[in-house]
């Protein structure tokens, strides 16, 4: 009797799993990104395994109502697409069509963290960082992609499209200001597979982890700053803790100095109290000193921003001011 129940139980389990399996098989399977994962880059790579007999068309729709479509044909089984994310929670729908009829629909919730914006620095509960480049996942890609590193250490590609990373990650470098190692696809010079104090958990989960804090990697080229900043009296926390990538995007960015946002916006993401109110020279007149939206007289061709007066890395002056004397600071612009 007991044995019968046991067999029955196993059989029912098997049936259920078959059902699950069968459901996944109807049309397509979403291999990446995984459920409730965190993204640190603006771009999420979607990898979809599709059955060309059941569906002939896949659409990916972002919550900003942007739709991308992929045609399914017999020659391929896997399809990849990079999707731009916005900061915060993104809900992206993937639908499979056959003869313009929805066969299967699936959605992914992704959280694009912002290390600068206080509101989006920490993900909701249940979300965690999921890594793609481990042996198991790479087995799926190996049919179409060369998953090895073909980068010669210390020598950039003459033709960047030859890089094995380029094929899937090319959109990472498309912005105006792009960082030389990144745009030359010297990926492993930073993605060296090491981990730092802050990301010990990533060890062995991915082949291409970047140490956090990242400063060791950055200072290997930007040598002079290490010395220069260490001599200063006051340090900005992100720079001091060596987490350059909080403000800088090591790949490419719309803003100069590879900042994740234009500098004023970037600073006020953390220093929100400075957005409104009388930030500077409260006593003279009623009008506050501008902090942005005007030309910067001290830096030709550039707009005034926080960095006009403050040094974002280190300074000998309190409040990280660019000059040690108040006269020196003001006279940067107010010459007469």
């Amino acid at each position: 009797m007991r044995r019968y129940i046991c067999i029955k139980y196993i059989l029912s389990l098997l049936f259920c799993s078959f059902l699950l399996f069968a459901q996944d098989e109807t049309g397509f399977r979403l291999l990446n990104p995984q459920i409730s994962s965190i993204n640190e880059e603006r771009i999420a790579s979607f990898v979809i395994e599709a059955d060309s007999q059941k569906i002939d068309f896949i659409s990916i729709t972002t919550d900003a109502n942007k739709t991308f479509s992929i045609e399914v044909n017999e020659e391929r089984s896997h399809y990849c697409k990079s999707i731009n994310l916005h900061i915060g929670l993104n809900s992206i729908k993937v639908a499979g069509y056959k003869n313009a009829l929805v066969i299967k629909e699936q959605s992914r919730e992704l959280f694009f963290v912002s290390k600068v914006d206080k509101d989006f620095r920490y993900p909701p509960e249940g979300y965690s960082k999921k890594h793609f480049h481990n042996q198991e996942n790479e087995k799926l890609c190996i049919k179409c992609h060369d998953m090895s590193v073909n980068e010669v250490s210390g020598v950039a590609f003459e033709d960047i499209t030859k890089s094995n990373c380029y094929g899937c990650h090319k959109s990472i470098n498309k912005e105006k200001h792009s960082h030389a190692p990144s745009v030359n696809w010297l990926c492993t010079s930073c993605h060296n597979g090491e981990v730092g104090v802050f990301n010990k958990a990533d060890k062995d989960r991915t082949k291409y982890s970047v140490p956090d804090p990242i400063e060791g990697v950055c200072f290997s080229c930007h040598k002079k700053y290490k010395e220069e900043w260490s001599k200063k009296r006051f340090h900005h926390e992100p720079a001091e803790s060596g987490r350059c990538n909080r403000c800088h995007n090591a790949h490419s960015s719309l803003s100069e100095f590879y900042l994740k946002k234009p500098s004023w916006e970037l600073c006020t993401d953390c220093h929100k109290d400075k957005i409104e109110g009388m930030h500077i020279v409260k006593t003279f007149g009623r009008k506050a000193h501008p902090t942005h939206n005007v030309k910067d007289p001290s830096r030709e061709g550039k707009d005034l921003s926080c960095t006009s007066c403050h040094n974002p890395h280190a300074s000998n002056a309190p409040s990280l001011l660019q000059s040690e004397t108040s006269m020196g600071l003001c006279s940067r612009c107010h010459k007469k």
Binding site: G154, A156, F157, E158, A180, P181, S189, C221
Partner: peptide, 14 residues
């Protein structure tokens, strides 16, 4: 040059 050396990395001038 075909490559310029910058911080120990050879970058092609293309």
């Amino acid at each position: 040059r075909d490559y310029t050396d910058f911080n120990g990395i050879k970058f092609p001038l293309r």
